[in-house]
Nucleic acid binder design. Sequence first.
DNA 1: TCTTAATTGACTGACGGTCGGTCAAAGGAG
DNA 2: CTCCTTTGACCGACCGTCAGTCAATTAAGA
Lengths: 198, 198
Amino acid sequence: MAIIVDKEKKRREIALSSRELLLKVGIKNITVAEISKTAGVGKGTIYEYFSNKEDIVFEIIAIYMDEHAKELSEISDSSEEIKEKLKSFMLLVFNSENSEQELMIYREFIAIALTSRIKEMSDFAKSCKLKIANILRDMLQSHVQSGDISALSLEFVDPILYFLKGVVVEQGMTQIEAKQEVLNFIESWFALIKVSKQ
Amino acid sequence: MAIIVDKEKKRREIALSSRELLLKVGIKNITVAEISKTAGVGKGTIYEYFSNKEDIVFEIIAIYMDEHAKELSEISDSSEEIKEKLKSFMLLVFNSENSEQELMIYREFIAIALTSRIKEMSDFAKSCKLKIANILRDMLQSHVQSGDISALSLEFVDPILYFLKGVVVEQGMTQIEAKQEVLNFIESWFALIKVSKQ
DNA sequence: TCTTAATTGACTGACGGTCGGTCAAAGGAG
DNA sequence: CTCCTTTGACCGACCGTCAGTCAATTAAGA
């Protein structure tokens, strides 16, 4: 018999090795030849692990998503007060180490997902959204129960995520001050949902 | 002198003629050769009026944006009550005559804007956002003054637009029920900002 | 007739994806 | 231990496609 490689692991390795390059020039201007050279494999090999060029971005986003879901859970479980937790939650993606680069790749992902009608993309995006929505809902729920915020706030779980996605997209299109927009929103929203302690 | 053509007009004509085709296959799968044939001009002529393939989507969106800004203003100026006006405002893009198709092109536009770092794109997107934000702000302002809603609602002008953009993107990625999401949001939000008539 | 804007489509270079073929490791038979 | 067979990983030359270019052509006004 011949060698059996860990397909999933190698897929991840190739994806990660091309990350730098991807950040520099974007998916549209990257060539598969470059990717294969960077990864130290032949061009044909790329297609053993990815069904097409865009699929590589897909893998990178999956990696990030795993990491972020974990960090978001930690924030949710922390003992901060809810307003601070929400700030950390919503700003995570703008504050993390190479946030600008991660965001760029995330935007590439959105762009691909918007233009390709691949079922896997849709399913993947759905599962991501669900996972994060659940974390956010749990977080708010616990503070509703402890009376920090109004029960109405739970209605805003999905809207908050749409808002966040909108901010990310808008920042990609028009260079808005994303963090500030998020902070403003949190202030305004809390003015409405906060239960005044008396 | 030779013929002087109305560049702006012809640009618009070419863009409109390719709209149907664009809806059917998307910008990625359309070829410039097809566009030129559909428009009844030579391939080279396309590049007299557009700097590249994506630029055509740009023009189509500009056309839609003009139309929509007008419709939004009409909604803003109507004498409905604010909640209904906001519904009309936010649902316009989902309810108009070929909304699904317009949305698809709009998503193509977002995808292009997210992946190409062209200054014009950014400026154009900025001016669109500003125009619409102003209409929305005026609309809310007038109802704050007449005491229908809390002054805090003005803080949500930008967030509402981010939310909308997020919904459009999410719908493109995961087929959510956009209209319902918008309606839910409006209900929840009004529960917070409505000034109870007494 | 001359000038010049407008138009054109053949051509080119680049690139995504394919496919026939090579190689090296892992049995297994003797 | 050695030689043969099998098999999966790996490769890169090749192909088809297509965006964008440009030299040639057209035709309207001066």
